[in-house]
Every structure is written in C-alpha cells, then in structure tokens.
C-alpha cells in the first residue's frame, strides 16, 4: 500500500458570521495560498483537487462551482467534489494518490452556515417521507440522544458540563472561549432540556485546506509531515428508531479498520457534548489521551469544513514518532463517521 502524508494545513478564522459570499471564495483565497506556500508548492504542482461543501447550506444549486475561482483553475485542473464534510473529500484524495495517478492533492472544505436557518436546513438530512416533514432540528434530536444516555446512566449532566468546560477553555482563538468550571456551567439554564447552550455547537462560518502528498515526496515539502497510517469510514441506517443512539457502531468499525491503538491525542468531531462521550467510548480513548486540544466542534463548528479541520489540527499537533487520531462525522446524530490515524514524522 502506498502511503500518504499530510504536508500542510490552513484554516480561515472561525467566525459567527462572515460578510463573505456563500461560495467561500473570500475565505478560501488566503488559505489555499497559505497551505500551498507552507509546502513550497504552487497550484500548478497539485495533481488532484477535491472539495466538500453543501448546496443547501448556500441555498443554491451548484454552489460549489464558483469556489474553483479561488483556485484560479486554469489551465484546467484534475478535480472532484463531495457533497459532505471535506473529510470525505480528503478520503477521496487519499485514494487518488494511492492509485499512483498523482502524488499531491489539495483538499478544501467551506461553509457559510450563517447564510440560512441552519437548524431548519439540517432537518432536510432526515428521512424525507416520515421524519423531515415534521422539521425536527438537530438540537432537538441531540436532546433525544442525550437523554437516552442520561436515563440509562451512561453519562450525567455533570459529565456533559465537564466536556464543555474543557472545550471552552481550550482555544483562545475560537469563537467560543471562556475559563469556566463544570459547576458554573451546570448553573446555567437549559437551552432545550436536557441540553444547555454549552452542550451545543456554535453556528460558525469557516473553511479549511489540507495538502496531501505521497509519503516519498512529503519529506521534500515539509519538515514535519504527518503520515496517514489508517483512514476508514462507515455509515449507519437512517432509521433513527432502529439505531442504538447511545453508541456509535460505525465509529467502532471505522476505528477497527483504521487501527487506533496508541494514540496520544485525538481531535473528535463531536458537535454535542454527549457525542464526545459516545465517540470516546467507541474509539476506546484512554484517560491520558489529549482530546480536542483545538477545542473541537463545541467552540467552532464550520459546517463541511469542521471534519477536515480535525484532521488538519491533529496533523499540526502530532509530534514526531507520536500517533494522533482525527475523527469526522456527517449526518444526523453521528450517522456517518470517519477515522483518520496520523503518525508524526
């Protein structure tokens, strides 16, 4: 199996609302340049481009097409796009390099979540016949999932607050940042019982770029590549009633396929506090693992870029010889999960 490494990563500032367009150009132009420069590459050196974004986030058909302007895609480029978080675009690019057809790839994801009514937009991911016509929103669905675990004693409201307190204190650059204790958080009111504001992700506009290279080339491009030693993803049924919502079997399977033993840090794409607990258990993450040093999706959740950002953040932090895990999720209530294992070089 030919190996692939992350050679650079750049992310736009995560903000509550950007004045920019829904095609992401204003966010992408600087960070595509930054990611290329960091790897001493130009756009002409990139063998394959792949992006992740959503028409429904933008409210327009083919909204991703204008984003290629940010590349300056001429002469024409070898390119593809996934209608999913860009972590899945990275998966497609990783596959492309492993076919031997190309030895570099640039992956980007972007989303202007603030352009629409995000909670209503995301309802359209549900079964269009029997669930979506009721417009259940992601916060309400997450509340159903959280209470299942609370009622079964799988986690407590205090456990959730501790996840939130740690996340909110992690990253001064994130749109949500405060030094706060779990006790203080528990005194705050419910947003929608059983969830408090801090249990939920902030609406965030953002974008992220990751450059991949065939491992043999990676050393030429950066002093600190992060080798991808495992990358796998799985999906679960959309039928909510048939799932055990307190566990994440798709994460368990993806982790088994990717091989997650011995990781020192983990970047988990857990938009809700209880989902971090579900994911930790599914991934078998021990207490000494540094979880979400970036603060994770609870402090900045740029839709369609947040999963890719987890991979970039893990790659940025993993020390030589160390192993790190990055996770991305897609769909309602952790329906689809991706696990990426990186090794610092």
């Amino acid at each position: 199996m030919s190996e692939v490494s992350v050679v650079s990563y750049a992310a736009a500032p995560d903000v509550r609302e950007t004045a920019g367009t829904t095609n992401g150009v204003e966010m992408l132009v600087p960070i595509i340049g930054e990611a290329l420069r960091a790897a001493n590459l130009t756009k002409h050196d990139i063998g394959f481009w792949c992006s992740g974004s959503s028409d429904y986030l933008a409210g327009r058909a083919f909204s991703f097409i204008a984003a290629v302007d940010a590349i300056g895609a001429y002469p024409p480029i070898n390119e593809s796009h996934v209608e999913a978080d860009a972590a899945w675009a990275l998966y497609e690019a990783w596959i492309k390099i492993r076919t031997g057809e190309v030895d570099t790839a640039l992956v980007y994801g972007f989303g202007k979540s603030s352009a629409g009514e995000l909670r209503r937009v995301l309802s359209l991911q549900l079964d269009p016949y029997t669930v979506a016509p009721l417009w259940p929103d992601p916060v309400s669905l997450a509340g159903l999932q959280a209470r299942l675990g609370l009622d079964r004693g799988l986690w407590s409201e205090r456990d959730l607050a501790e996840v939130a307190a740690r996340s909110r204190g992690a990253n001064p650059a994130a749109p949500v940042h405060e030094r706060v204790t779990a006790e203080e958080l528990l005194r705050r009111p419910y947003l929608a019982d059983p969830l408090r504001r801090h249990d939920c992700p902030p609406v965030t506009d953002g974008a992220a770029v990751v450059v991949l290279a065939q491992a043999g080339r990676a050393r030429d491009l950066t002093d600190h590549p992060a080798r991808i030693t495992g990358l796998a993803h799985r999906v679960e049924t959309a039928h909510l009633g048939a799932r055990d919502l307190t566990a994440s079997p798709s994460t368990v399977d993806a982790a088994r396929a990717a091989g997650v033993d011995g990781v020192a840090l983990a970047e988990l794409h857990a938009p809700f506090t209880h989902q971090e607990i579900i994911l930790r258990r599914a991934l078998g993450i021990a207490g000494d693992v540094d979880v979400n040093p970036s603060g994770g999706a609870l402090v900045a959740n740029p839709m369609f870029a947040a999963g890719l950002a987890r991979i970039g953040e893990a790659a940025r932090r993993v020390a030589p010889g160390q192993r790190a895990l990055a996770h991305a999720t897609s769909g309602p209530l952790l329906q689809q999960n991706l696990v990426c294992v990186l090794e610092g070089e």
């Binding site: 028409d55 999906v235 689809q336």
Partner: peptide, 11 residues
C-alpha cells in the same frame, strides 16, 4: 449500512 458510503457531486 455498515460500509463506507461516499457521495460525489460534480454537477
């Protein structure tokens, strides 16, 4: 279900 599922959209 239980497998990798990828969604492509290139117009």
């Amino acid at each position: 279900t239980g497998k990798p599922l990828l969604r492509v959209h290139t117009a």
